[in-house]
Amino acid sequence: MRTISRGGGRNAQMNFKKKISQHKETIAKKWFELIINSYPAETARFLKTRNDPFANPVGMSTRQSLEVLIDCLTDQIDQTGQDKARSALDTILRIRAIQDFTPAQAIRFVFDVKQVIRQTLSVEHSDSQTVKEMAALDRQVDELGLLGFDIYMKCREKIYDLKANEIKSRIYKAFSRAGIIKESLDDV
């Protein structure tokens, strides 16, 4: 077994991440295709082809957020990077949390990027160092996935919160301010 010096490791890591950055466009495109294909065919066509962010908010914001997430995988892992990742995941998952997806279907796109990168960079056919770097990246993607679960759950909780409290916060509040709250709210 060969040992790799620490410095060499960092270098290799940089090279690997640089490679990802160089292929960012292809990776983003393939990743986007995968997520978009989780929708029915007619919808996927629309999401893919309409380039106006206001006419096609789901497609365009998803595409943009995936690009940000790729940057996050290759950039330094610091607070700013984490905030960026959180916000990009939030954009996508806030949408998927209300659409016709199970939790697994909503979040699985995060993990898909592993295969996209493997395929795009032909990782399986690369040297062992690259394979190792890929394994490290896998763990990073897993972290993103876990963060995704948290965000997804927060969105679902928000939906239930809105379901339960909307009437209370709009009508009940107005009535109670006026002190005429005794009327049956069940009939509202």
């Binding site: 029915p40 629309f46 096609n56 789901v58 949408i95």
Partner: peptide
């Protein structure tokens, strides 16, 4: 008209076209 409905855009369900 197909992609102009907010319910289609938001749900992604073609029957909302």
């Amino acid at each position: 008209c197909a992609d102009k409905c907010h319910f289609f855009i938001g749900t992604g369900d073609p029957k909302n076209m």
